[in-house]
């Protein structure tokens, strides 16, 4: 296995359920987490809708995969960037999103926030800083 740790950014721009992109992205992230790489997730445009609380899919007969985002911390995915402008354009704020955390093994499993609210300019810098960007 390669010793080089690359910095992977998964860029999520689609709403959940209307298309399969959101779930596919999540599956690829979980599979990719088996390899020791530096993984970040970005939620931009309609992608921010993936993280809303209170998703209930029984009436539409689809799998509700919103609880799976809470497992990301277990998979060592600790950096989830959400774009502020994308939220605002959609009438949302951080309070409308799930609270995602990861546990820091080195600090007696202290719970730490995974979600970081960033501006569009900061998001551009995050994209520039990534070695590889996977788009969904």
């Amino acid at each position: 296995m390669s010793e080089t740790i690359k910095n992977f950014l998964y860029l999520n721009r689609k709403a959940p359920y209307g298309t399969i992109y959101a779930w596919e992205s999540l599956e690829v992230v979980l599979i990719g987490a088996a390899f020791d790489q530096d993984v970040s997730l970005a939620f931009v445009d309609d992608g921010v809708f993936q993280l809303t609380k209170n998703q209930h899919t029984s009436a539409v007969g689809m799998k509700n995969f919103s609880p799976t985002y809470a497992a990301l911390g277990d998979y060592e995915v600790k950096k989830v960037f959400v774009e502020k402008e994308s939220l605002e354009e959609r009438g949302l704020s951080l309070d409308d999103l799930q609270h995602l955390t990861w546990e820091d093994e080195d600090e007696d499993w202290a719970e730490k926030d995974s979600i970081h609210l960033v501006t569009r300019a900061e998001m551009a810098a995050i994209m520039d800083g990534a070695d590889v960007v996977f788009s969904f």
Partner: peptide, 11 residues
Amino acid sequence: LGPDLQARGLL
């Protein structure tokens, strides 16, 4: 459509 609102967490 209500079921689609619920699925997306929109109250």
